[in-house]
């Protein structure tokens, strides 16, 4: 057992930011409250992204009222697969992934069948604010279900792996890919049991992974190595993340991206308070990198230059 003071000392050397430091020094200082709706309301995020020419999954429908739920079945009858998510959801709560149908029933990503009534109930719960922060009434987005790139097939259990990039003042600082497991029920959320795998920013290679609080080298369900994977279209992912942060107006933001096998990188959502688990996944702290960027007086207006800076400066140590 290490003594707590040694732990603090080592963590400081690593540059690990705790919740308090992240909130006090970065979130509160660099994220103006007025821009929060841009990331908290996914309908607005999508609209902004389209205006800025950034790729997002197609929006099929937005449900705002209870009575619109019933009409939805007709609206969606031509769609084989889609995703229903709360506009104000957080942490992946309340996201329903439909990958197919069987008669009148919907098939969920985990293989379970869901009848129409269950489906309506879920949407109605979402509208009442079950998944939104503070429980205020919400809206449901129905959007394109990402066909994820087969390169991750052998390191994920159902569900969609996604890439999170933390961008500070427009510079990508740290990245990880989140791989769903059986335990996470196909969801890409680390606290639900997904694996976080740190990505080396200069090379786009995965370096190390974390499952729960412990380091792992293989996917627990598929037993394939999660180290040394090359993330395809890495430069493009970083570019989109860098531009998405500009669009959000937030200085410190997490950008969640997916790789669609046909459409390439797409922005899933933005997060105004990212950054704890990603440090464990990378085995690296954020503080040293954030300080380097804080030392820059005016960030380069060119996203390509910022990405180049990050790829030069932020190798996984």
């Amino acid at each position: 057992m290490m003594n707590p003071f040694t732990i603090v000392k080592r963590l400081r050397e690593i540059g690990l930011a705790g919740i308090n430091q992240r909130n006090a020094d970065y979130v509160l200082r660099y994220n103006p409250r007025k821009f929060y709706p841009r990331v908290d309301d996914k309908v607005l995020t999508k609209k902004l992204a389209l205006e800025h020419g950034l790729p997002v999954p197609d929006l099929y429908a937005v449900v705002r009222e209870e009575h619109e739920i019933e009409e939805l079945h007709a609206k969606l009858k031509d769609r084989e697969s889609f995703v229903a998510k709360p506009a104000h959801g957080s942490g992946g709560d309340g996201i329903l992934v439909i990958t197919g149908r069987r008669g009148a029933k919907y098939r969920r990503a985990n293989g379970q069948l869901m009848d129409q009534e269950d489906f309506e109930h879920h949407l109605s719960n979402t509208l009442s604010g079950l998944f939104s922060l503070g429980g205020q009434p919400d809206a449901v987005l129905i959007e394109y279900c990402v066909m994820f790139d087969p390169i991750f097939d052998h390191v994920s259990y159902k569900g969609v792996p996604d890439v999170r990039v933390i961008v500070f003042r427009g510079y990508p600082v740290m990245a990880m890919i989140r791989l769903p497991t059986r335990m996470s029920d196909g969801k890409a959320n680390l606290h639900q049991g997904a694996i976080g795998v740190g990505i080396d920013i200069p090379t786009g290679l995965t370096r190390r992974g974390v499952w729960g609080n412990e380091p792992v080298k293989e996917h627990p369900d598929t037993e394939h190595s999660i180290i040394g994977l090359t993330i395809p279209r890495w430069e493009e992912l970083l570019m989109i993340a860098a531009r998405a942060s500009e669009m959000s107006g937030l200085g410190y933001v997490g950008v969640d991206l997916v790789l669609d096998k046909n459409l390439g990188p797409l922005i899933l959502e933005l997060n105004a308070r990212p950054g704890l688990a990603i440090q464990i996944a990378n085995g690296n702290g954020l503080v040293h990198r954030l300080k380097k960027i804080e030392a820059i007086e005016t960030p380069d207006p060119d996203p390509a230059a910022r990405v180049a800076f990050s790829r030069r400066e932020f190798p996984t140590l």
Binding site: I7, G18, N213, I280
Partner: peptide
């Protein structure tokens, strides 16, 4: 207060 929370030390102890 922007220091570590006590339980964070426990959470991050593997890295340390």
């Amino acid at each position: 207060y922007s220091g570590y929370r006590l339980l964070e030390l426990f959470r991050f102890r593997a890295l340390a």
